[in-house]
Amino acid sequence: MNTILLVEDDQALNMAFRTVLTKAGYNVVSAFHGLEALEYLSDNQPQLILLDLLMPKLNGINFLKRYQPTVNHPTVRIIVFSNLDTEPEIAEAMQLGAHKYLLKADTTPKQLVESVKATLKT
């Protein structure tokens, strides 16, 4: 079973995405900010990370800078899943190792599952 690390600070959204992805057959681990995600990643390697950008304590960009996915876990797929749609941040996230960007507000649960499935295949 593929494991997804869901990094999302909004409680309601974290719960919703966890439910959707669990029902789709994934093992979902929730983190509510970048530091919590880093802590999990120090001992574990999921197949995919669903990453919010604006979060307290450690935001998505700084998380990627510290995590250095291409060095530490080069096989992990990362989807930036945020309501922030500014080009410089998205470009920076991609440069730091993210594979895909989805605008949260425009993505239905079905589309999320499809994107996760497709990204895991790449």
Partner: peptide, 23 residues
């Protein structure tokens, strides 16, 4: 501002879709 407007909207949208999809 757009991020802040979209976040609660995302929650409403995702839960409404979940209800619609039979969750």
């Amino acid at each position: 501002a757009s991020h802040q407007l979209r976040t609660p909207l995302s929650a409403i949208s995702v839960y409404a879709h979940m209800l619609q999809d039979g969750y």
